[in-house]
Write a protein that binds this DNA or RNA. Structure first.
Length: 273
DNA sequence: AGTCGCCTGGTA
DNA sequence: TACCAGGCGACT
């Protein structure tokens, strides 16, 4: 599911539900999803801990526990993190279950098993969490900050925006949407983009992410929030998954190409090469 | 910088 | 049967 708006929506829906709950039981059905620690250690460390907070960094969900431990979840392509009553039937592909004292559970559902769960006392241990680029919606992420990122960068703009070490949180859908909104062709080289275009891109990135959050995420396939609810931003997408349909601005047909293996949608009229 | 592997399921 | 899918890390 997970780009920044979807992960943020999961975090928001979970934090209102699980903060203060105490972990009583942990079940791991698919061991490979637990990174770094053995399943035995993972269980032993979690049981008895209390949930202190839930937040997001890039596409990582950070669940703060008592005793300064962090349960960090990355959903990758198909992960769901669901808060549910323990008597509710388990969905298919439910691979990790964390039970609380209140007869409810946090369930990690992950069809393609790409997701990962880390239990750490230091963020730098969890995947590339410590190497993420800036948060595009944070207050100190200014236009100047954004422009500075482009120094000495010459790659294809779409790939750069997908690079989490460059900028955290964008994925395939929102990158296409942002480039459309900024009028920039996805294959443009980063060093061939004007100051004016960078300013438009900066605004576009923030707008598509904020709109995505406002509409509670984009549900094209598996995505649901922490309460199991689908998003609505798929109804507002301008180019993604609209191959052959008319551009909402100029009525030209939206094209689909491959950029580094990723399906890429753009308007050949509105997005300048 | 680009390609491949990880996995399962839906669709053409 | 083949190809496609919100991601990312390990390769070359």
């Amino acid at each position: 599911m997970p780009e920044l708006p979807e992960v943020q929506t999961v975090v928001d829906t979970l934090s209102s539900r699980i903060i203060g709950l105490k972990i009583t039981e942990v079940e791991v059905k698919v061991e490979k999803l637990i990174a770094l620690s053995t399943v035995a250690d993972f269980k032993a460390e979690l049981i008895g801990k209390e949930i202190k907070g839930v937040r997001r960094r890039g596409k990582y969900i950070i669940i703060e526990l008592s005793d300064d431990k962090y349960l960090i979840v990355h959903l990758r392509m198909t992960g769901q993190l669901l808060y549910a009553a323990q008597n509710l039937e388990l969905a298919k592909h439910t691979h990790v279950i964390i039970s609380f004292a209140n007869q409810h559970q946090l369930r990690f559902i992950n069809k393609r098993k790409f997701g990962r769960i880390y239990l750490v006392s230091d963020f730098s241990e969890a995947g590339s969490l410590a190497e993420l680029g800036p948060e595009p919606l944070s207050e100190d992420f200014t236009l100047d900050t954004f422009k500075a990122l482009f120094e000495n960068r010459r790659g294809i703009i779409k790939n750069l925006l997908l690079n989490q070490k460059f900028l955290a949180g964008l994925g395939n859908i929102y990158v296409d949407e942002a480039l459309y909104l900024a009028g920039i062709h996805p294959l443009r080289k980063a060093d061939q983009i004007s100051e004016e275009e960078l300013a438009k891109l900066y605004q576009a990135i923030r707008k598509v992410l904020k709109d995505g959050i406002k509409h509670r995420g984009t549900t094209k396939w598996d995505y649901v929030d922490g309460s199991g609810q689908a998003g609505e931003h798929q109804d507002y997408l301008q180019v993604y998954d609209r191959k052959g349909k008319n551009c909402y601005d100029c009525a030209e047909q939206i094209e689909k190409i491959k950029v580094s293996g990723r399906g890429t949608y753009f308007c050949p009229e509105c997005q300048l090469s």
